[in-house]
Computed example of a mutant assay.
Amino acid sequence: MMEITVVRGDITTQRVDAVVNAANRAMRGGGGVDGAIHRAGGPAVLADCVARFPRGLDTGAAGWTTAGEMPARWVIHVVGPNYTAGERDRSLLLSCYTRALEVADELGASSVAFPLVSAGVYGWPKDDAIAAALETLRASATEVTEARIVAFDAATYDDVLAATRS
């Protein structure tokens, strides 16, 4: 059974098998979590994105690359819906978590660190982003033994922790 843990910190420093990147469709780096992962992982992450995803990824999809210079072995990239731009299909957000776990299983990853997909610059309401993550992680059949939700700030950490206890 998978354990869901919550930590406050920087996803790029997590000592897990894989970190999940909230990427954009182009898969060439960006802001927020995506930019942080590309900066921390170094040029190997971008080079692998270009090689593996020459046309990018669709919303709700997932794929993997090396983690480059980060302590994790892999980055699992997911493309969440952009709520601010009118992409409000919740099934696409749920798909990000489901597909990330499927990719983790394909890789043999037992520990995976997740951000709150789409909750940053893409503007998905935080309470629902937390609910979507927890619903999907709790319902998934996976070989992953630890799903770690990484909150960058104290308020988000408190919100996620409270939601895991309810």
Rank of each mutant, 00 (worst) to 15 (best):
T5C: 10
T66I: 11
A163T: 10
A85W: 03
T66S: 11
A154G: 10
V121E: 07
T12D: 13
A18C: 13
E87I: 01
M1V: 14
R52P: 02
G80H: 00
A104T: 04
P81T: 00
A119N: 01
G56P: 01
V20N: 10
A104M: 04
T164K: 09
T5Q: 15
R15P: 03
S166L: 05
A133L: 04
A40D: 11
P125S: 11
I4Q: 12
E69Y: 08
E135W: 13
A133W: 07
Q14D: 13
G30Q: 03
A47V: 02
R52V: 04
E3R: 15
I11L: 15
A36M: 13
I11H: 09
G108A: 01
D48T: 10
W74D: 08
V45C: 10
L101H: 00
R88A: 00
G108C: 00
S118R: 02
G9A: 14
L57M: 07
P43S: 13
D34G: 07
P54L: 05
T84D: 04
A85L: 08
A133F: 07
T164S: 08
S140R: 15
A141W: 04
P81V: 02
L134Q: 09
A18S: 14
H38T: 05
R148P: 06
S111D: 04
S111A: 10
V16Q: 12
D153K: 10
T142Q: 10
L46D: 06
T142F: 08
W64I: 01
V75N: 03
G42N: 10
D127N: 14
A62I: 03
A163M: 08
A113C: 04
L116Y: 02
V6C: 15
V33L: 11
I4K: 12
V16K: 12
V16C: 09
S95D: 02
R25P: 00
S166W: 06
E87S: 01
A119Y: 03
L107E: 00
A100K: 01
T66Q: 08
R165S: 13
G35M: 11
V7D: 12
E106T: 07
A40Y: 10
V45N: 07
I11G: 12
D105L: 01
S95T: 00
A100W: 00
K126N: 05
E102P: 00
A155K: 13
I4R: 09
S140G: 05
D153P: 07
V150N: 11
A139V: 07
A139Y: 08
M70D: 10
Y122T: 01
R148C: 14
R52Q: 13
G31M: 06
V112W: 05
T136P: 05
I76T: 07
G108D: 02
G68T: 09
A36Y: 12
A44E: 15
A162Q: 11
V33T: 14
S91G: 00
D17G: 15
G41F: 11
R148H: 05
V78Y: 01
E3Y: 06
V160M: 08
V33D: 13
P125G: 12
L116G: 04
H38I: 07
A163W: 09
A162F: 06
G42R: 11
A23K: 04
V33Y: 10
A47G: 06
G56Y: 01
P71K: 09
G63S: 06
